[in-house]
Design a protein around this nucleic acid. Sequence first.
RNA 1: GGGGCUGUAGCUCAGCUGGUUAGAGUGCCGGUCUGUCACACCGGAGGUCGCGGGUUCGAGCCCCGUCAGCCCCGCCA
Length: 587
Amino acid sequence: MSGTTRRTHRCGELRAEHVGQLVKLGGWVHRRRDLGGIVFIDLRDRAGIVQVAVGPDAPEEVRRSASGLTGESVVEVFGKVVARPADMKNPELATGDIEVHATKLVKVGSAVTPEIPVARAKSEELPAEELRLKYRHLDLRRPEMQANLILRHRLLQRARKTLSDLEFLEIETPILTKPTPEGARDYLVPSRVHPGECYALPQSPQIYKQLLMVSGFDRYFQLARCFRDEDLRYDRQPEFTQIDLEASFVGAEDVQGFVEAVLTALWDEAGHAVERPFRRITWQESMERYGTDKPDLRYEGLAIVDWTAQVESLGVPFFAAHKDGARVRGLAVKGGGALSRKDVDQLAETAKQFGGAGLAWVKRQGDQLSGSVAKHFSLEALGRLGVGDGDAALMTVGPDRVTSPVLDKVRQELIRRLAPPPARPHAFCWVVDFPLFESEPGTGRPVFAHHPFTAPHPEDVAKLDREPLACRALHYDAVYNGHELGSGSIRITEPALQRTVFRHLGLSPQETEARFGFLLTALAAGAPPHGGFAVGFDRVAMLLAGAGSLRDVIAFPKTTAARALFEGAPAPARPEDLAALHIQVTA
RNA sequence: GGGGCUGUAGCUCAGCUGGUUAGAGUGCCGGUCUGUCACACCGGAGGUCGCGGGUUCGAGCCCCGUCAGCCCCGCCA
């Protein structure tokens, strides 16, 4: 399969079974070891590395060109696959049982000295990320990056096949779309033919896929490129790929079933067995027990507990200083006795960083109690918190909106420091029953927590006007080991309800018509019940590749300042191009 | 928009309390070498200490500004 008119195999494919065969290879010089009378060349391609030997028996011109080769030049080699004697095998190389004795060797692409190394010493750090991005063609030659992108390819194919087998149709949607003032900032593309008007790149194909449901396509998917002009993180790029899907005549469980099928297939592709169905946890329970809407359920046992009642009579001043809706919540840390004073101080620092009041703590070793509030506790009082010998209790106080994120961060930090064995390596869950609204920081005004097409929970529709913050949404997130993999919802199909939601968003009927008229028109034309989901594919690839950032699973990513260092984007526009687009630059 | 870390040879890094000529490994160039696999050994070249300003008798080191990369907060319906 890998053979062409210029080669018979890939370098990294050769094994003992090929011994005796005459092969033709093409690859890059990974390393060269010139011993004088014999030269070894590690020849590399996407399949791996094979050792080419040019010994005293090789033709004179082969020996000459072999000794003049420099790193990263491209050579074509003709030779014989030979078994290596037992004491010369290299167990660290997949091809290490054999080597190729070259009878012909031609440099077909000479290479300047690479700006960053492709072949690194074992202990050598990676070049600075700036250089890796600038010389991306070299960075991508490294076997680790090749493996990442090869895995990414396999994951994409597997997703495509899984959904196609489930009768989903792959349908492409526009890249030049309509600006949406809500949500993330749009990337705008000015129109030449319509002065002052712009297209926007899609933040997601959301409305299109709903239109496809109205059109009767039933089940849609797309490996969709999406664009959001927001600030970046290690796990956020301005352009990214979603496994986007939508289905008709479904409830939330149906959509979740489809998504589980895709995710388990992807994990299987990466060699991991995953159990279905995924566990379900309500948003409320997740916030209560883990302080976050993306709980890491590998460590279920370490959960946040409400100790307000248990500590009330102890007279701890730290707790008493907080009133009015404040609860005392904390973590009973099995084996927390192992935490040093410094550990706890740093945890308390973390708590303060995230706006908490700080951290009160008690540690028990034998009958000895120690810690910032130890003098207020007896063994019995501590026992009521579930804290035994060798354990520790970490506590904080305040309103949930403060203590939840604080305890979430403290919990994550504890897991990092104590590294307890996970109950399961792959902890998937569905977080369900999200609130439809959240209160806007500052004003406390209810604002939509999701996109405005998310259906309210049928039981809560009556509360829409009276108690918006108590309304649940038919919205669900897929969470894996504390990472959000994606989210989805059942959509509104009733035009009147959709108009009500837009009104809650503060849109006038005129604005609603102008921005979403085409969706409302479609919904009025006979819309099937439908819902869908979008998997953040880059993040999945990052997790399955064990990569440290999205940049390591994207061939040509942007920097945190949204620059492309390789090709140099963005770049100043030429005045004549701006003129054609009717644009004046003021900055 | 705000905060933090980093920036010294092609690359990875060291550089003491501010002190004379800025170092190591690797890569590169030249040489020796017939079983290496990070080959070994000998020799050599290679520096705008990110950039600009300031303090000082003297700055890689201190101060101010700025640029770039990364991480975090805000932001990401």
